[in-house]
Amino acid sequence: MLRYVARRTLYMLLALFVIISVTFFISKALPGTPFADDKLTPQIRKQLYEKYGLDEPILVQYEKYMLNVAQGDLGNSFYFESRPVSQMILQRLPVSMFIGVQAVIFGLVIGMVLGIVAALRHNTLWDTLAVVVAVLGVSVPSFVLGPILQYWLGLKLGWFPIAFFESWIYSVLPSLALSVFVISTVARFIRTEMLEVMGQDYITLAKAKGLSGLAVILKHVLRNALIPLVTVMAPLTIYLITGSLVVEQIFAVPGIGEQFVQSIVVNDYSMILGTTIFFSVLFILALLIQDIMYGIIDPRIRISGAKE
């Protein structure tokens, strides 16, 4: 198990190295500079270039950047008066995290209930209803859903504030908008898996032991049906990251996503690069955790065991 984690960590670092390098060179190849403002005199511009090391050969810049990143230093923002990028990200992290985690919780709870009801009431109106909700959830993009929620739950019913972030109540709509995709993914997954599991011999055997219907569902069906859910963890992380870019914009939430979009608008390269690295780390971590969890939950593929 330890060796497995060590090896996986090595691969992760390798992947990260490649991602950072590629992002670095792509950002250099992009047209435009952060200091393209016409009001800047050539002299000031030259000073700025020197300050940020942009006048050096690209490979030297690359080397410096990579060494800095290795030490956890993502450089300074080009736009915000040389504030450290990592500090700016960390500052915005709690808000984004809160909305994201809350979206996952909403998604898991509502999605599981929907999925379980659909599976247990297979081929009834409940089932159909749950499937319709699930399909709507994956097919309606958040930039459509966000305004709908703002209009309905915010303006019409007045239950929740529609923008900014001042207290918990402000987080409900953004989280809900983000969670709809999670809800439908989880619901469809649970439904399919439960139907599949309920047809297995070991479920018949569990019933043949005289267990109650509820015990069979809780102890045998759900446990087996939930395992594959772990595999959606990485894709969901991607979704939450990309979704946050849109949702934070719509609800004016001061999170990482909103900041990222702004930094693109103003060509703040170090910020773009830093945030990309941050998102990559997040995703790679999610992949690693997914694999480890899969190994813990499902003894068939216990990492130390048969798979090696």
């Binding site: 297995q200 011999d201 032991k209 068939r300």
Partner: peptide, 25 residues
């Protein structure tokens, strides 16, 4: 009533041992 029969009164062994046991328990 049937749940009290299954197990202590009447029990069953199935054909395929590879699929009869819960893999996660």
């Amino acid at each position: 009533q049937m749940q009290r029969v299954r197990g202590p009164k009447i029990a069953m062994v199935f054909q395929d041992p590879m699929t009869s046991l819960d893999p996660t328990m």
